[in-house]
Design a protein around this nucleic acid. Structure first.
Lengths: 214, 214
DNA sequence: CACTATAACGCCACTCAGTGGCATAAACCT
DNA sequence: AGGTTTATGCCACTGAGTGGCGTTATAGTG
């Protein structure tokens, strides 16, 4: 949510959105500095001048606020595939394009840093990692609904292909994100999209990878 | 852990294993009956006549005890791929065989029921679902280590194929488990292995699934 | 510009998961 | 049997998350 989009919302909504963003930013900074478990919710709420009760009206858990950046990305992804033109392509390029396009449209200001902190925190905080994976699975299910509504594919109980293709895309995306977040060179939006392209390209070859003993 | 394997352990280990099993069985029954959140740890510990402190020496969290059946399955899987003969096959059939073989060697008595209850609980308990996914990811990483040690494949940072193949296998396995656990007909070990074979067979076709608008 | 309706917020008390510390008891070893 | 090691029980404590309710701020209306 950029400042521009914000202006044409009612005052009440505007304040809510600002509080939400302040919580995300402050949480990411504090967690990164002192560790996820090293910061209590009370401290976070103090820093944002918010009551703990209000925190739980905005986020469902402590993990939820730290996972918000990637979650927002997934939400935008769902919105994209709701209307994207398949133009005769197979499912995997379709999903890859959707991801690339969504990343391209994310807010310019500070987006990269937020996702990066989110990923690095998740990498060393089991409960956060678990939460992100759970959210991601919810998204996958919703995406499955959207795609099977829009396109002419057999239902999941008869044919697991759509489901499997989605899971592959998610796996490829995760692998790209992981390598990107661990990159010692400053990760940029461009380096992320490059990694995504590469990983998706590697998918078909993965099926036939031969196993020769060392 | 069967009663047979149990006998040649020292008394101390035997007791620990029995307590652990009692905790799993009682937890699954209680959670199924009154819901995961409807049972407190104190109640569970009372039922097994164990102090809460001892519970946390056996399991890392409330979720952990309910996820133990599938976790045990994954541990056995790791053990299997440590020594399984690839016999020239590609990675996917190799992993499929490993899973089938592991399922075949699980304890006869009550194993199906435990896994079933675990899966059905995870299906309607977000925190449990999240925990299982996290554990599963830990396993995937370990499997990656084992395979890249045993076989002659490029390291992950240069080539994501091994990693992607593992993720696909996990996705296929999950899909099989999900359909199996939701089966209105009594799920058996045979019906599970059949589903696994079918889902793995569908993987190559998933890559090229065409998207034609309805 | 009031005036009412409607959300959001703050505060307080409470439940329950999870942890640290230490005393006790059980199993192991010789 | 006697001393050592290792598991257990108990108690007090922290911190996440929830329910209830009074208060404040925004929205909608004459």
């Amino acid at each position: 949510m950029t400042e521009d989009e914000l202006r044409d919302l009612p005052l009440r909504e505007r304040k809510k959105a600002r509080t939400r963003q302040a919580l995300i930013d402050t949480a990411l900074e504090l967690f990164t500095e002192r560790g996820f478990d090293g910061v209590t919710l009370d401290e976070l709420c103090d820093a944002v001048e918010i009551s703990k009760r209000t925190f739980f009206r905005t986020f469902t858990s402590k993990e939820d606020v730290a996972g918000a950046p990637t979650h927002d990305l997934w939400i935008a992804f769902l919105d994209d595939i709701e209307s994207r033109d398949p133009s005769g392509a197979a499912i995997l390029p379709f999903l890859c394009d959707a991801l690339l396009s969504v990343i391209d449209r994310m807010p310019a200001e500070g987006w990269t840093r937020r996702v990066l902190l989110n990923l690095r925190l998740a990498d060393k905080t089991p409960s956060l990692d678990a939460h992100c994976r759970y959210l991601c699975d919810l998204i996958t299910r919703t995406a499955l609904d959207i795609l099977s509504r829009r396109f002419d594919v057999p239902p999941e109980r008869d044919d697991p292909r759509l489901r499997l293709a989605l899971d592959m895309a998610v796996a490829a995306f995760h692998h790209a994100l992981e390598g990107w977040a661990a990159d010692p060179a400053e990760p940029t939006r461009a380096s992320l999209t490059a990694r995504i392209r590469d990983t998706f390209a590697a998918v078909p070859g993965a099926l036939t990878l031969p196993l020769t003993p060392r």
